[in-house]
Amino acid sequence: MRQFFPVEDLARDERFVQTNMAERLADTRNPMEPASNRKSAKSRSAGNRLTPDRPDASDRARGLMHGIMVGEIQALEGAGRTAHDFEAGDGSGDTIPFELKLDMARQAWDEARHVEISAKLGDWMGTELGEFQENTVLFEAACSNDPVLRLAGVNRALEGLAIDVFTQMKEFGDLAGDPYLEFCEDWMLADEVTHVKMGSDWLRKVTEKDPDRRTKALEFQQVVDKLFSFGGARGDHEESSFKLARRFRELAGFTDDENDTINKLGVDAFNERSQAVKQAQDAASAFADA
C-alpha cells in the first residue's frame, strides 16, 4: 500500500459519481436565488439559508444531507490515511506522535459512525446513495502530504466546516419538527467539536518549537477555508447559505480573530464568485442575442 493516496483513486461503488472543485467552478450558473424571485425580503427564506419555509426546503435538505454523507466518507478516509501514512515519532519530518495516531484512529471510528448516521438519515429523507454528485474537494484540499498541514486542513478547516453545516442542519431539523434529524445532528456536532479541538491542540503541540511551521500550517488552513466557503456560501453575511457557528467553534479552539478571518474569506469568495457569474451570464446573453 502506498504511503500517500491520491484523491482520484478514492474507491467508490458504481452508484457514486465524483467531481472536483475545478469542474464545479466551471459551472457558470447562478447558485443563489435572485433577489427578484423572493416573495418577501423579511421572510426567513429571503436569503440562501436552508430553512423549512423555503419552497425547496425538502430537496435542498436532501441534497445537503447527501453532501454531508460523502463528506463524512472522505473524512473517514482522511482520518484513516493519517493513521496510516505517518510513522510514530517525535513529530518532526514525516512522523507524528503515537498519541496523535491513536486520535486519528478514534476519529476514523467517529467518522464511520457519521457515515452510518448520514446514510440512515438519507434513507429517512428519501435519498438514494449516490443520487447526487460527490465533490472530492474535502479530501483533495485537506489531505496534504505534510502531517501538520493535514491537521490544519482536515481537523481545523474541514471539521470546522462540518461544525457550521451541522449547526445549520440541527436548526433545520428543530424548526421542521423532524424527530431524527435534530437528534442525529446534535450527536454528530458533539463529535466534530471534539475533532476540531483535537486538531487545535495537536497543531499547537506539534509546532510548539517551530513557529515557521505553525505559520505555514495556519496559512494553509486559510487557503482551505476559503475553498470550503464554496464561493461565499459560508459566513455571517446575508447571502450565505451557512452561518459560522461561532459558539461551537469557540468550544473547539477557534479564536474570535480566526472566526473573523474565516468570515472575511467567505465574503471575499462571495464577491469573486458573484463577479465570475455575472461575467459568464453577460457572455451567455451576448451569445443568445447574436
Binding site: 426546503a57 425538502s58 429517512w124 428519501g126 435519498t127 419538527g177 423532524d178
Partner: peptide, 14 residues
C-alpha cells in the same frame, strides 16, 4: 416514495 413522504412531513408535520 420516501422523498415525497418526507416533503409532505415537512409541511404537514412528522
Amino acid at each position: 416514495t420516501q422523498r415525497w413522504r418526507y416533503n409532505h412531513r415537512n409541511r404537514f408535520g412528522f
